[in-house]
């Protein structure tokens, strides 16, 4: 397959950035999207040019570091997948593909397709933890958790913090991310001790990072590689309101 690429190139945070055209030749339909970019990069290095910078690590949809807008969609076409899980068989020979970094004020572009996601880390540091003492922990079955509750907490915990929800949202809102983290702990007994302070601090940090507000477009749910439901946003709102009293 031959794929025509329009890739966002930006030298660093101060550079304005621009689209550059590349052609990826000898692309196999079995390749992942990142493997296709690897090939383009090998060619670029051979020509003495700087390869396209993008984040990646596990390449199996777990680490959450790869993420790019592909033809205007976070993580490209297909539902419930990260960019690394997108395969070239989703495209046709001769297709044109536009690749951009996540766009959000809270995610400054560092280089090409790499963005700075430390705003997410700061939200987590504000409250995305339990400070239960470690050490002599009770037996696993000493605290009983009904399966549907455990399942729902697990669905929320599946969030890999990739930022696709922010990139897909017209308001650059991080509500799906924050709601998944709050929800996961609000549902479980271990999360009860800091239940009120957690939601207040995480929301305050989210606002400070200049993420937008939620206006219920559900674009986040549609593009989330872990298919996290917007019902967690409803729980986040309930937790936040309850924490005021």
């Amino acid at each position: 397959m031959k794929i025509h690429l329009k890739v966002w190139r930006q030298k660093d945070q101060n550079d304005g950035g621009r689209f550059v055209d590349y052609t990826a030749s000898n692309v196999s339909p079995d390749m992942s999207f990142l493997e296709m970019l690897d090939i383009v990069n090998i060619d670029l290095v051979k020509k003495g040019e700087t390869p396209i910078a993008f984040d990646h690590d596990c390449r199996e949809g777990i680490c959450g570091s790869c993420g790019m807008m592909i033809n205007g969609r976070a993580h490209g076409p297909g539902r419930g997948i990260a960019t690394c899980q997108l395969h070239m068989r989703s495209f046709q020979d001769g297709d044109s593909v536009v690749i951009e970094p996540w766009r959000a004020a809270a995610f400054p572009v560092l280089k090409d397709l790499m963005i700075d996601r430390t705003s997410f880390d700061r939200i987590m540091q504000a409250g995305g933890y339990t400070s239960a003492k470690t050490g002599g922990i009770p037996d696993g079955n000493a605290i009983l958790i009904p399966k549907p509750v455990a399942d729902e907490a697990f669905d929320a915990a599946a969030c890999i913090g990739c930022g696709a929800c922010v990139a897909a949202c017209p308001n650059s809102s991080a509500m799906l991310f924050v709601s998944a983290k709050v929800s996961q702990l609000a549902l479980l007994p271990q999360g009860q001790a800091e239940r009120t302070t957690r939601v207040q601090r995480m929301i305050a940090q989210m606002d400070e990072e200049k993420f937008g507000a939620c206006s219920n477009t559900y674009a986040c749910e549609a593009e989330c590689p872990k298919q996290i439901s917007v019902t967690h946003i409803a729980r986040l709102n309930r937790e936040f309101i309850a924490a005021q009293f």
């Binding site: 030298k11 660093d12 670029l44 290095v45 051979k46 003495g48 040019e49 700087t50 390869p51 910078a53 993008f54 560092l110 280089k111 790499m114």
Partner: peptide, 13 residues
């Protein structure tokens, strides 16, 4: 080995 770019920027290679 060939590494392009320079050492004073983000250089994945």
């Amino acid at each position: 080995v060939k590494i392009t770019g320079n050492a004073h920027e983000i250089n994945m290679e």
